[in-house]
Structure formats: C-alpha cells, structure tokens
Amino acid sequence: MITIGDIKLPEFPFLLAPMEDVSDPPFRRLCKMHGADLMYSEFISSEGLIRDAMKSRKKLDIFDYERPVGIQIFGGDEEVMSLSAKIVETVQPDLVDINFGCPVKKVACKGAGAGVLKDVDLMVRLTRAVVQSTHLPVTVKTRLGWDDSSINIDEVAERLQDVGIQALTIHARTRSQMYKGHSDWTHIARIKNNPRIKIPIFGNGDIDSPEKAKKYKETYGIDGIMIGRAAIGNPWIFSQIKHYLKTGEVLPAPTLYQRIEAVKNHAQWSVEWKGERNGLLEMRQHYSNYFRGIPNFKVHKAQLLSALSLEELNWVFTSILEKEVH
C-alpha cells in the first residue's frame, strides 16, 4: 500500500494528471468510475485565488465521490502561494499539489510552473511556504529540468523531500521538449533508486496502453503511474491497465454503445456543474476523442457540435445507434 499523509492508495496506484480545461469534476468522475486511484483538479493560479477570480474559484469544486482528490496550484511568489494554500484548505481536499511542470509560455515564462526549474532555491522556498501554511499533505509535479543541458531532477527531488513534500510526480521530459519527443524514464528510475529518497515517486509521460504501463512498471521500479493525455476520450484506460496487470489479458476496445454511454454521462454531469449552455459548449472539445477510430463519424460529429440541449444530444445518439443496428 502507498500512503501520502493519511491517504491510503493501492500498492501500485494510477493517477489522473491535472490537465487544463480537461480535468474538471465531470471528467474526473468518469475516470474514477473506470479505475483512477487519485485525481487532481485543473491547475489553479495562486494569483487568481488571491484575487478571488471566478474561474480560479470554480476550479476548487470537488465532490466526495472523487476522493481521494488533490487541488493543484501554481505560482512564483512565496506569500501568494502560502495564502492560496490556506484558501485551498477551506474546501478540504485530500492534498495540495504544486505545479512545477507546466511548460506553456504564459506560465513558465512568468516564473511559475516549469519556469521555476531554472531556480531550485526559489522552488524550495515556494514549496516550504506551502508546506508550512497547510495541515494537508503537499505533493509536487515537475519535469526533469529546463532543457537537456540543465537536468536537475536529482537535486530537486532531494531538496523538496527535505522541506516536507510527501510524494513527487516526475514528467520524464524537459520543459524545452514540451510534449514532443520521447520521455526518458531512466531519470525517474535513478531518483527512485536514490537511497536518500523515501517518498513515493510517480512516473508520467507517454503511457498510452496497458502493455506500456506494465513494461514501465517493471523496468523503472516506480511507485505508481500518472496518466494524462491518453485518458482524454478514453477514461477506460485505467481499468484496461489494471485488468492487464492482473490477468495478462488485453480487454477489447469500448463498443460504440459504451462510448455513447460515457459521453452521455460526461455531458449530463457537465450540464449539472456548468449549466446547459456552457456545459454543452465545453463538451464539444471531447466528441472527436471519444469516437476516435469509429468509421464514418464525421457526419455525426457535425450533429453533436450543433446540439444545444441534452435532448438534442440524446436524439443524435439514438440515431447513431439505430443506424448501427440497421
């Protein structure tokens, strides 16, 4: 069993990565249904929380059926990070996670997210500020370094453990790689094998199949795996991997009916959380992912994109299934 503070996870847990505009409560609920063991909010700007920005506050919404669930914050100012951790504590998540890994320009080039990898002393101060301002367990997600010539994850792991983080997730790419090229998990294995490291080490990057999850688990000796982009439109990946690890059997891909049921649930929960108009508008980004690989889907996609109510959406799904039967 893996423990983070009072959180008890399975012996080898699977985590849903925090993803901007993806990892909201409706999507997290689906992934939880299909086997995710620990999930995180979308990353939240500490500055936004302090300013009481509506978008940042909305991202604090968590529900009991999601637990254990963490809220992830990012920022580059110690006092602001400390205050935002106190705000996060009021909604009673199971943990606080600090994002030192986001590579996007608007975050990293403002000295937050992966930008903090350029200044490990600042990273330590920011982490200490959060640890000292909350009673919740604090964890960190980061990358190997800024670029290939400045990989500093060994120093980062030791120093962040020393100031009190209780787990570390490492995306096995540098910031300069963004999401391109291959991730290099040998660096994660080295951290895991460091006798000084006592906290759980989770690996992230390129896990998109049960076979790969098993290979990386056995090759790199990590404590668990975080899955991000491969879960978009495919919440089944968690149960598929778990089934494969347990039995060696690859489950068949979800049927058209199962895909439709997942989208209907996702849309229903999205509407309940955001209202019908916003809920369905934000669902539009997901349709292509759920139906990837389904032949002749283009015509149905246009119908789904034009649906402005759950009733219209369900009508489209009914017509898709009727065509399938005939």
Rank of each mutant, 00 (worst) to 15 (best):
S41Y: 10
S41L: 06
E47F: 03
E47K: 15
L49C: 11
I50F: 00
A53P: 00
M54D: 14
R57V: 13
R57Y: 08
K58W: 03
K59I: 01
L60Q: 08
D61P: 00
F63V: 00
F63N: 05
F63W: 11
Y65G: 01
E66G: 07
R67W: 05
V69P: 02
G70N: 12
I71W: 07
I73S: 05
I73E: 04
F74Y: 15
G75M: 07
G75H: 09
G76D: 04
D77L: 03
E78P: 00
E79H: 12
E79G: 12
M81H: 13
M81I: 13
K86F: 14
I87P: 00
V91I: 13
Q92A: 12
Q92V: 00
P93R: 11
P93M: 10
L95A: 09
V96A: 03
D97A: 15
I98Y: 13
I98R: 08
F100P: 01
C102H: 05
C102E: 03
P103D: 09
V104A: 12
K105N: 09
K105G: 04
K106Y: 04
V107L: 08
V107D: 04
C109T: 12
K110Q: 15
G115N: 02
V116K: 01
V116E: 00
L117W: 10
K118S: 11
D119T: 14
D119P: 10
L122E: 07
R125K: 15
L126F: 07
L126P: 02
T127C: 10
R128Y: 11
R128N: 08
A129K: 09
